[in-house]
């Protein structure tokens, strides 16, 4: 039973230990939390769809080391992100910033909702204008 429990725990919580460094980067839990948060905001450019917190690639390890050193040197979040984008461009940010090239990406969900809403409104208003007594349309009451 104990073994089963251990196996379940390892399966459930083991992923948290994956890929990231062998030891915590900072003794201070606040700094460690900040480190982990920033690592999740930076992309590993070798593997593209992973953050440097998730990736085992050499480049991700190098960037984590760089992140630790920048934090230890007392750089602000903004300075660290600037350091990374100066070298790797906006693509290094896991969450793309709003720029002329990306506005469509950010606006797409809103545009789709508005577009869908318009189509729905047109269809509903047209249907509601149909006479209720239309024999071809059994209406909502019929099933």
């Amino acid at each position: 039973m104990k073994q089963l429990l251990l196996a379940a725990m390892l399966t459930l919580f083991g992923f948290q230990a994956l890929a990231i460094d062998k030891a915590p980067a900072f003794e201070d839990p606040v700094q460690q939390a900040r480190y982990e948060r920033l690592a999740r905001e930076l992309r590993c450019l070798q593997c593209r769809s992973e953050t440097i917190a998730d990736s085992n690639a050499q480049l991700a390890a190098d960037l984590r080391r760089q992140l630790r050193e920048l934090m230890a040197a007392g750089k602000s979040d903004q300075e660290i992100m600037q350091y990374m984008t100066d070298r790797y461009g906006d693509y290094v940010l896991y969450k793309p910033p709003v720029t002329p090239r990306t506005w469509l990406l950010w606006a797409a969900p809103v545009l789709l909702v508005i577009g869908g809403g318009l189509v729905a409104a047109i269809v509903i208003s047209r249907k509601s204008k149909l006479p209720d007594t239309d024999p071809a349309d059994p209406g909502l009451g019929a099933s």
Binding site: L45, D62, Q66, G89
Partner: peptide, 13 residues
Amino acid sequence: GDGRVGIDWGVYG
């Protein structure tokens, strides 16, 4: 050897 200059040059592969 440890890829530090590579980072300055934005090397990713």
